[in-house]
C-alpha cells in the first residue's frame, strides 16, 4: 500500500479497508488484522491504525469484541450502501473533471455509451 494522496494516513487506511469490504475480499463478519499486525505490515504507527479502526467503528462498518479483536460488519445492506457511496464519489469526481474540460452532460453521456 502506497500512501500518496494528500489525505491523512488513517483516512487512506480506512479507504483501503472499505474497498476490501466492497469487493468482498473482507467478507461480513471476517476478523480484521490486529492493530499490531497491520501496523507491522504497513510500517505505520499503531496509533494511526487504531484511529482508522475507531473511525470505521463509528461509521458502523466494523465492530470490536473485547479481547477478540475487530470484525467487519455483518450488515450486508451497509456494505451495499457503502459500495453505492464509493461509486457516487467516483462519478462525481469524473463529472467535475469532465466539466472542467467544458464537456456538456449530453457529450459526456455520448462518450460513456461508446
Amino acid at each position: 500500500m502506497n500512501f500518496k494522496d494528500n489525505l491523512p494516513i488513517y483516512i487512506q487506511i480506512m479507504n483501503y479497508i472499505k474497498k476490501e469490504m466492497v469487493i468482498r475480499k473482507i467478507k461480513e463478519g471476517d476478523k480484521l488484522p490486529s492493530v499490531r499486525e497491520l501496523s507491522t505490515t504497513l510500517t505505520v504507527n499503531p496509533n494511526t491504525i487504531q484511529r482508522a479502526y475507531t473511525e470505521l467503528e463509528r461509521e458502523g462498518l466494523v465492530f470490536t469484541q473485547r479481547g477478540m479483536g475487530t470484525f467487519a460488519t455483518e450488515d450486508i445492506e451497509k456494505i451495499e450502501s457503502l459500495k453505492k457511496d464509493m461509486a457516487k464519489s467516483l462519478v462525481d469526481n469524473f463529472l467535475i473533471d469532465m466539466q472542467s474540460l467544458n464537456f456538456s452532460k449530453e457529450e459526456i453521456k455520448k462518450l460513456i455509451d461508446l
Binding site: 489525505l7 491523512p8 510500517t43 505505520v44 504507527n45
Partner: peptide, 28 residues
C-alpha cells in the same frame, strides 16, 4: 508514517510542531 508528532527544526529553534495526522489534514 512512524510518527505521532513531528517538530521541524530550523536555525536552532522549532519552526513548527504538531500531530502528524492533524498537519496532513490542515495542510492537505
Amino acid at each position: 508514517n512512524l510518527f505521532d508528532d513531528v517538530a521541524f527544526l530550523r536555525g536552532g529553534t522549532i519552526e513548527l510542531i504538531g500531530n502528524a495526522e492533524t498537519l496532513r489534514e490542515e495542510k492537505g
